[in-house]
Design a protein around this nucleic acid. Structure first.
Lengths: 259, 259
DNA sequence: TGTACATCAGTGAACGCGCGTTCACTGATGTAC
DNA sequence: TGTACATCAGTGAACGCGCGTTCACTGATGTAC
């Protein structure tokens, strides 16, 4: 059981479950309107150029009125960041949860990955805010970390459960086969996935964690390349290409099919 | 044998090899100074916020004087784009060329990939310009395509040569093992790598081309994640992590070691 | 239930700023004879 | 080699613009008695 409406909760801050006055309801609603207008602006302006005055105009109020809701432009950006991360995270969660057969880990994998890309295509402005170049003068506050982690948690938990179910073909051979120089030997232990492993559980082999991080990177690299125009000349059918990539990633992780 | 100084040539346009007058030399030099100042600005401002006036100030001239060299802000951006792509491309080319044993394809692979990351870390502003969010109102002109392709050409040619040398362990099994649904069957032929294959040669198997594109995406995904701050909590030693990724990619491509 | 006061949303004017670009100009550098 | 004219780099003022943020204000909504 999750929060019935995480977006609203995130926007309104720590609003208790108690009854709201009409004024409070109006405030929440207009706050949401401002953020919604800002999201639309984001789709064609880029976060650095996001104009508080333009957003105010879109909502139909005078620019100074926005300061009743957000203390500064940066605070509005933070709200957008939190909202977008939560939106993406819950899209991935829902896609995973929608797969009825929980043991069908490949199905869940593909569903989650497609949901990520689908969300990005539907919200290119938000995607660029989250995964594009950082906004020059802006440093994301602590509050954005938790929602930011939601997507990768979905990915990691699918892998973890697949491992627990024995649906991953052995921990996937480590360096071994390839390794050109002695340098490869120093590699295996040197990577300290402190936080990542905190999210995974110690029973998952290191090599599998590495592979999961790589897959995560490839997914977002692929989506970024698509959205930022780097695949224009090379790939014609981007839908199919994404599925091709997703399947190869599943293979590299050692996922084994149901039957 | 390459152009002795591609950067300068790109900046000055189609300057013939004929002797330059003092005025021409001065013009080229100041053009380069402007671009250099703009690159420095880029490192901390982001392309969308790049200010022509600020650049002029840095160079020590009045803002209108810049218009003797670039007709508009967009034209300056284009010059930056071309310069950066060429810079990155030649860094990768040099790294590959520096590996004495041309049959050591894994060594060349690692060298090229490390050069890409090294360049990105040394020029984060340029990297964000090339691979970060697109600049809102700006559309890159045709002239940027050719230099943009240089990096991927390096990667593709290493793979192609490895294939020709028999240093790639069979064309790497296609879908086969994993494939959950029938959808995987429709995949193999559907991807039309028109341009990519034009760059590769028909003897390279499709699966290998797919894998190369994936590797390319993963490399830039990893670098973007590092530079844009998405690996902060998860990975501690980024140098080692990158090598780990590069080696896994070589393995997935089917590179076989020298001995 | 009714009044008096406090809270709060939204207004409109104003601030100081930096921006891209244009234009008429000055003076130095190059070219033609 | 020397002069007359054309080319070009750089100046400084000006344009119109949109921006983030502040502030004193009005009027509506809520709260306490």
């Amino acid at each position: 059981m999750q929060h019935p409406n995480p977006e609203r909760a995130a926007l309104a801050g720590a609003t208790p479950a108690r009854a709201q006055t009409a004024r409070e309801r109006a405030r929440d609603q207009i706050t949401a309107e401002i953020v919604a207008a800002a999201r639309i602006r984001l789709a064609e302006s880029g976060p650095g150029e996001l104009s508080l005055r333009a957003v105010a105009r879109d909502v139909g109020m005078v620019s100074s009125a926005v300061y009743r809701y957000f203390a500064s432009r940066d605070e509005l950006l933070t709200a957008l960041l939190v909202l977008a991360y939560d939106d993406l995270g819950s899209a991935a969660e829902r896609a995973d949860a929608a797969v009825a057969d929980r043991a069908d880990v490949i199905g869940r994998w593909l569903a989650a990955l497609r949901a990520i890309r689908g969300w990005a295509l539907a919200h290119p402005g938000d995607y660029a805010l989250l995964y594009g170049s950082p906004v020059p003068g802006y440093a994301a506050p602590q509050a954005t970390i938790e929602p930011a982690v939601r997507v990768i948690v979905v990915i990691l938990s699918i892998v973890t459960e697949a491992h627990a179910l024995g649906r991953i073909a052995t921990p996937t051979a480590p360096a071994g086969p390839v390794t050109a120089a002695a340098e490869m030997a120093s590699v295996a232990g040197a990577v300290a996935f402190v936080r990542a492993r905190g999210l995974v559980g110690d029973e998952v082999p290191t090599e599998l964690v590495i592979r999961t991080l790589m897959a995560w990177t490839t997914v977002f690299g692929t989506v970024s390349f698509e959205l930022f125009g780097h695949l224009v000349g090379s790939v014609t059918d981007l839908d199919v290409y994404f599925d091709v990539v997703a399947s190869r990633l599943a293979a590299d992780l050692g996922f084994s099919a149901l039957r």
